[in-house]
Amino acid sequence: MKQYLLTIYQPDEGTPPDNLDEIMRDLQALNDEMRAAGAWVFAAGLHAPSTATVLRAEGGDVLVTDGPYIESKEHIGGFTVIQAGDLDEALYWGKKMAAVLTLPVEVRPVADY
Rank of each mutant, 00 (worst) to 15 (best):
F42A: 09
A39M: 10
G78Y: 03
G38A: 12
H75M: 06
L55I: 00
V54F: 02
T53S: 06
I76E: 00
P11F: 13
A29K: 09
V105H: 11
M24K: 11
D21F: 14
N31K: 14
F42N: 08
P49K: 07
M1C: 15
G77D: 04
V54T: 07
P109D: 03
W93D: 07
V54C: 02
H47V: 15
S72H: 07
G77W: 05
A111E: 07
M1A: 15
L27N: 05
A99N: 13
Y69C: 03
P109W: 02
G78I: 05
D26L: 12
G67A: 02
A99M: 13
Y4V: 00
L27R: 04
Y92V: 05
D21E: 12
G77C: 05
G60R: 04
L20D: 12
D18L: 15
V100Q: 03
T53P: 07
A39W: 06
T51G: 08
Y69K: 01
Y9K: 13
T7W: 07
L63N: 01
P16G: 12
V62L: 01
I23Q: 08
F79L: 14
V41G: 14
D88Q: 07
T7G: 09
M1W: 12
D61L: 02
P17T: 15
G85Y: 06
P104Y: 14
L5K: 00
G14C: 07
D26R: 10
G60N: 05
Q3W: 04
L63C: 00
R25K: 13
